[in-house]
Design a binder for these strands. Structure first.
Lengths: 128, 128
DNA sequence: CTTCTGTATTAAATATATTAGTACAGTTAA
DNA sequence: TTAACTGTACTAATATATTTAATACAGAAG
C-alpha cells in the first residue's frame, strides 16, 4: 500500500502525505473510505506512530481527510473539499512550471496536448 | 533584488535558489550576466556566505548558472542548458498538478486557456 | 602586491524531523 | 462493564538538516 524511501532526503511524513494524496486523487481511495489507523500504518511501515500522526494532521488541515475521534480517519468526499484556496495554490504552481517550460522552449502545443491527454484519461467527471 | 522570509519554514538557501531561478526565467537576469558574488550577496542579505554558496552550488548543478574561479558566477545562456532531464522533471510536476486540478473539477478549457495566456505573454521566443 | 573572485574545510550552534513512551477521551464489540 | 480499538496530545531524547563562524587556498584584475 505504501512505500517509504529511507534514502530519500525528504521527510517520511512528507512521503506519506504525498502517497496518500496520490491515492485519493487517483481514486484508489474513495469518498468516506476508512484509511489505516495511525498505529496500524505505523506498524505496517515499521516507523513511529507520531510520524503518521503528523502526516494525517496536515492532510486533515489541507482538507483531504477527516478524522473522527475513536472511530478513525476517512477520505473527504471531493465535493466537500474547500476548493478555492487549493485551486489558487494549484494555479500558482501551474504558472511556475509553465513559465519554466516556456524558458526551456517547450512549445505551447506540446503542453496543451499533454494536458488534454490527462483530462481524457480520467477526466470523465470534469469534462465540461 | 532579493527578499528573504525568515519566518518561512523553507531553508534560506532554497529561497535564494527559487528567487534566482525566477529572475533567470523571467528574463530579469540575462545570458552570461554576472550575478552577485557569494560574499556580496551574503552582505546584502546579512546572512552567512556559506548559505549563498550552497544555493549557487545547486543552481550550478542544475544548470542555471556557471561559475568561473576568481571571476564570478554567471547566468547560463538558455540554449546551453541541458534541457532533457529538466523537461522530464517539469512534465512530471505538470502531471501531478493537473491530476489534482482534475480532481477538484477545474475544467480542461480553463487550464488550457490559462496556459495559452502565459505563452502569449512572454512566449514570443517559443511560440511554435 | 592588494583585492576581489570561487571553492573547500572544520567546528559549533540552531532548527527540524523522528523516535519513544505515556496518557486521555470516546467508540465498538464481546 | 470490560477489553480493545480509535484520534489526539504531550514531553523527552535522539538524529538529521540547516546555518553560522572562521579559515584557507588558487586564480584573476588592477
Amino acid at each position: 500500500m505504501f512505500q517509504l524511501n529511507l534514502k530519500d532526503h525528504s521527510p517520511l511524513y512528507q512521503q506519506i502525505k504525498e502517497q496518500m494524496k496520490t491515492m485519493i486523487i487517483s481514486g484508489a481511495l474513495k469518498a468516506d473510505e476508512k484509511i489505516p489507523s495511525v498505529r496500524e500504518l505505523a506498524q505496517m511501515l515499521t516507523i513511529n506512530p507520531n510520524t503518521i500522526q503528523k502526516a494525517y494532521k496536515e492532510l486533515e488541515q489541507e482538507g483531504f481527510i477527516y478524522s473522527i475521534r475513536a472511530k478513525g480517519s476517512f477520505v473527504t468526499p471531493r465535493d466537500n473539499i474547500l476548493k478555492e484556496v487549493r485551486i489558487n495554490e494549484l494555479m500558482t504552481n501551474l504558472e511556475k512550471t509553465v513559465r519554466e517550460l516556456i524558458y526551456v522552449q517547450v512549445p505551447c502545443q506540446q503542453v496543451v496536448l499533454y494536458i488534454k491527454k490527462l483530462y481524457a484519461e480520467e477526466g470523465s467527471t470534469a469534462d465540461d
